[in-house]
Design a protein around this nucleic acid. Sequence first.
DNA 1: CGTTACAAAATTTTT
DNA 2: TTTTGTAACG
Length: 758
Amino acid sequence: MSYKHLRSKLKSSNTNKLDQIFNAFEAEGRALKEQNNPNIHHPTSDYNQEIDDIKRLDHKLGLTFERLNQHQRHAVFYPSKNTILSAMVGSGKTTVLIAKVFYLHFVKNIPFDKMVVLTFTNKAAREIKERITSYLGDKATQINEQLRYFGTFHSIARQILNEHPYLIDLGFKPGFQVMDEQEKQEFLERLIIQNNLSIKYINQLNKRWKKYNETNEIIMGNMKSEDDFEELVNLAEKEKRTINSMDFDDLIGLCNKTLSQNLFNAPDWIIIDEFQDCNEDQLSLIENIKGVDSSLFVVGDQNQSIYGWRGSKENLFQEVQLKWNATWLELPQNYRSTENILSAAESLLYDNNGSLIATRHTGQPIDLIRHFDDQQEAFYLKEQLQTSQKENVSLDNIAILFRTHQQIKIVETIFKQSNIPYQLGKKDDLHDKPILVFFLKVLKVCINPNDDDASLGLIFDPTFGAMKHNKSIIQALNNRDQNTTALNVIFQQISKRKNPSVEHITLLQQIDKFTKEFINSSKTNINELLDFLNLRNILKPTSIHHQDYVTAISHAWEQLLIFMKAQSWLDSISALKVAVGQVVLESSFYINGRIKEKGNGVHLLTIHASKGLEFDRVYIAGANTGIIPLSQHQKGSQNLKEEKRLLFVAMTRGKNNVEIGWHSQPSTRNTEAEPSYFLNVIPDSLLNRKTTGDQKKTTANNQISDEWQIGDSVRHKKYGTGVISEITETELICSFKSVGEKSFSMAFAKVLLVKIES
DNA sequence: CGTTACAAAATTTTT
DNA sequence: TTTTGTAACG
């Protein structure tokens, strides 16, 4: 469909909203032409000579470089001090990043501990570390200590803080804990009760905290006067230091403060993965770690920047290229998708400048398929997958992608009914595992009996605690003297009760002895821990879940011991503190372990969750205007651009086949009965338009004509009463006494108009 | 305690 | 855009 066609179609629908969408869309097209081409530094050598030299010294190492294409070799070997590697989708960016690390270490003799390698996810960090470990094999002695600065932004920030003497100046002590968002909310609520503060919007403390930090703004929403929020912030900053616990933002923020003291040995190399996702604080962290002689190697893809709402900056690459005087290299070759998929996806981009090159065969055009609604689409998908099953095609290599979690539910329901195996992309949350939340609280009190929140959480735990949430106990913590720990107060309070829980009294007594009698003893296996703390009696010994609880705790403890072992220079209690502090930062390692079932079946994922993954077949569900882009994102070209990149990311997950579905009668509000207008830029030759052959459409049409008849009287909230003058497949036209003729999208008619029975 | 007015949320999520 | 949630007021 051409722009012209689109415009005439939008004009005929006579709504301002669609006109606005079109204008924004057009503005985007203009922006496309205004983009500047960066000065790409192209490879001038095939680096065969260098690789031959390396092969003579170390044959195996040479082979890892030989596999790279010319652009990838250029990125690895070119000796620029600061490098921005703009890696197109599916161009082997992780392979190059790892090859660079190998080259710097094994050829250029840079020690691993002189490199800082930062990633956003634990998964990426782990992949890089494992590649090095497996390459070294038996020679990988003390590798964890050498790879100490390989990790996520948050992990590395935490580690720098923990090792740096300036931590004391900041008011914290080594072995500090880390609060996630939920723990911070609970922490602030505790302070509000303890100090009798009057705080509005109590459910949005995290949001208010961020707003206050950024703008010093206290007033929110309907508040006409200030509440005690400023006092809460001051109290919280003090209290964080008392209980020795930081939040996520503190890790990066305070690390930045620490590094600005110039007491950190700058590394030789700083290597960053997924650079396009950096926010301001993370960028500062990079610049603070960087010394005068440090080199930078940042890798990323601006076309896959879909986390703007988390603070990543548009045009970050261009910005830092100037600032760092960096050499701009590209990885243009995509090895993942067919040429048709890539050409279609590429037409969505506005600043690619033709730098994405397909290496695979042409393949099939993208199927654009019309369904009646989400339910019909789900049935269609069910049938498609059943066919695949009959043909013995593994569903593991197929993904269905959605804009929202809401959309996933209906497909999940129908797949469940029809026994289609599926796997969900959502990661496990620590807070969905009550047993681990409880176990962590126990450990936190063990290592710090003055942790008020862990102590309270322990006895108030809804599943494993001793009593219901109780304000008087919270306030009792406030009135204690300096020599009384939070653990003591809890113990006293619980003992005072009429029928105190004996199990919990024993637990608290044992926790008190933990540092003296347990952690330094030679016995630290899980059974000894459970016995020492009397935990078995608390884990509902008669419940059928008892064994699951024990298994979950065993796994978490095993992981903690592994982490402690890696901190060989610390005494055991310090090592445990550091290990427990790490749990929140890489919770997935502590959650499932061996218990996790092997995932089998079709993947149901949000597009965001699909980033970094690839599948043989990809189906993008419910791709209407109003879903992609999401209706509330249709204002502001920044938002629109990001939504467009989201569709780009979705399409480029597919290796062989991409199919896009849309609904002619969408059931969600604010959704147009049109396929995403982003698709209009894709050339017709690359899009194969189809319709589900179905009976439902006919019945649905009957429903519509049953519901609305020409001549019916209707009432509209604003326009008053009117009469239906015309009905088309997608539109309903009404004439009102007050404003004349107005047309409504069929999808909206039900919401906007009330039929007046005569 | 009920009503009114109006800002914020809706949507994505790692640490 | 509509819906939801909260403060403020009587």
